[in-house]
Simulated scan of single mutants.
Amino acid sequence: MSAKDDILRSIKNSKLANAFIKVNREDFLPQLLKKYAYDPNYVDKPFYITPNVTTTALSLGMYMLDILNLGETQKVLEIGTGIGYYTALMAEVVGDNNVISLEIDDTIFEYAKNILLPKYPRIKLIKTDGSLGYDKEAPYDRIIIWAAAPTVPCKLYDQLRENGIMVVPIGSEKAQGLYRITKIGYEPKIERLGDVIFMKMRGLFGFYEDDDPNERRIKKIEEKVNRLLSKFMSQS
């Protein structure tokens, strides 16, 4: 039995299983990586698409989509389009007009746009800071996040519909957990499902140490100003 068959057998959501059969991962990978799309030696490993962006390992990505419990006509918000493969799978289940996908990286945004939109023209693919979510289309039935958040992403949680589900990695660079969060008023149901390692979330509610050099310089300037102000206040 092939690695692809093994993953297919593990998928509980029948609609997601049908999408997995229909959508070819090879179509979304760069030329040099296509041959590894369903290679049993690589289904548990992420691929670097650019120096700054990886695509989630196939086995883990399918597990995350499965526990998201996708259904027809649900509105889904995706944080981190990546190469667009998982975006396409969700579009097959819920309809491409119900998928809003946010990507912060310029290069990978263009990559995904060129692959996704010819096949799924009604997907809303937006280049923006995904840590802020997308209020214009809220509320969402489902939210999935492909980067580790430093804590429960409250801004995104606010954009969930009541009883909606979010799947998100949370933690530091060295220790992260995968969580399924169900919105039940202001007391969410939080389930920890296992240990994972993801690249850290960028953006306003992400990890500041991952921001670009200009932002780091601004932060250092702010720290110097604050130290000077503290010194001035202590002398006054």
Score class of each variant (00 low, 15 high):
20 F>V: 13
21 I>R: 14
22 K>M: 08
22 K>L: 13
23 V>G: 02
23 V>L: 00
24 N>T: 12
26 E>G: 08
26 E>A: 15
26 E>M: 15
27 D>Y: 04
27 D>L: 09
28 F>A: 10
29 L>T: 09
33 L>V: 10
33 L>W: 03
33 L>C: 08
34 K>M: 12
34 K>C: 09
34 K>R: 15
35 K>C: 05
36 Y>N: 09
36 Y>Q: 11
38 Y>W: 06
39 D>A: 10
40 P>H: 02
40 P>Y: 01
41 N>K: 10
41 N>E: 09
45 K>E: 04
45 K>R: 12
46 P>C: 01
47 F>I: 09
47 F>P: 06
48 Y>V: 02
48 Y>A: 08
49 I>N: 04
49 I>T: 04
50 T>D: 11
51 P>V: 03
52 N>P: 00
52 N>E: 14
52 N>L: 06
52 N>V: 01
53 V>N: 13
53 V>P: 02
54 T>M: 10
55 T>K: 08
55 T>N: 01
56 T>C: 06
57 A>R: 11
58 L>M: 11
58 L>V: 12
59 S>I: 11
59 S>A: 11
61 G>C: 10
62 M>H: 08
64 M>L: 07
64 M>Y: 03
64 M>E: 15
65 L>Q: 07
65 L>A: 10
67 I>D: 11
67 I>K: 06
67 I>P: 13
68 L>Y: 11
69 N>I: 05
69 N>D: 15
70 L>K: 10
70 L>P: 12
71 G>I: 01
72 E>A: 12
73 T>K: 06
73 T>W: 00
76 V>F: 14
77 L>S: 02
77 L>R: 09
78 E>W: 11
81 T>S: 14
82 G>V: 07
82 G>T: 07
82 G>L: 06
82 G>D: 03
84 G>L: 01
85 Y>V: 11
85 Y>G: 02
86 Y>I: 11
87 T>S: 13
88 A>M: 04
88 A>C: 01
89 L>E: 01
89 L>Y: 15
89 L>D: 01
89 L>F: 13
89 L>A: 06
89 L>H: 13
90 M>V: 15
91 A>M: 12
91 A>G: 04
91 A>F: 14
92 E>C: 08
93 V>N: 03
93 V>Q: 02
94 V>G: 00
94 V>I: 01
95 G>F: 14
95 G>V: 09
96 D>V: 07
96 D>I: 10
